[in-house]
């Protein structure tokens, strides 16, 4: 990152490296995303409190951070978001757009921060959860014309909880990393 061109080249090569990554990783990517979505659909039935967990978001944040490629991050976010949308009772694209942006920004952020640091992970998870909820609310208001209130305090508390969950989750996901 000493000069501009180098930065882009480096990033480009990084993507090429990723393309050559073992297929297992892609399977894991898909599998974990699916698992996260299913978790959100299924688990809150047993434990209502767990409906506050946004595992699909955390997974998106994690993989975007790890790959540190904005394109990969945003595409991954879009896929997870759309999958979530298609199971929800709202128009397709709401979660999609929000998670696309989260993926993009998470990947961009990873180029700047030391993403192995638990503290940074905590802060980033918190930040992106909050960003996710806020932007979703903005979309609801602006695009769907739903004049809902934004519950700031509640969102902050849930963001903290999610960030706390994100730490162990990221730790587990680290173990799935191959190579």
């Amino acid at each position: 990152m000493s000069d501009l061109g180098g930065g882009f080249r480096e990033e480009f090569s990084q993507v090429q490296v990723k393309d050559k990554a073992p297929r297992f990783r892609i399977a894991a990517l898909a599998g974990i995303a699916l698992a996260a979505i299913l978790f959100q659909v299924y688990v809150p039935r047993f434990i209502g409190q767990l409906s506050y967990l946004e595992l699909p978001l955390l997974v998106t944040v994690y993989f975007s951070l790890m790959r540190s490629s904005p394109v990969a991050g945003l595409l991954y976010g879009a896929c997870v978001g759309l999958a979530q949308d298609s199971l929800a009772d709202n128009p397709l694209g709401m979660f999609g757009i929000v998670k696309t942006l989260v993926g993009y920004f998470a990947a961009t952020a990873s180029q700047r921060f030391n993403i192995e640091n638990p503290g940074i992970r905590l802060v980033l998870s918190f930040f992106f959860f909050f960003f996710h909820q806020f932007f979703y609310w903005v979309l609801e208001r602006a695009l769907l014309g739903q004049s809902l209130d934004f519950e700031l305090q509640r969102t902050l508390v849930i963001a903290v909880l999610n960030a706390l969950v994100a730490l162990p989750l990221f730790h587990i996901l680290d173990k799935l990393k191959v190579g």
């Binding site: 904005p70 945003l74 879009a78 397709l92 757009i97 696309t100 993009y104």
Partner: peptide
């Protein structure tokens, strides 16, 4: 990014 967002906005 813009392309993906635009596509989804179109979908919405």
């Amino acid at each position: 990014l813009l392309a993906v967002v635009a596509v989804q906005l179109g979908l919405l």
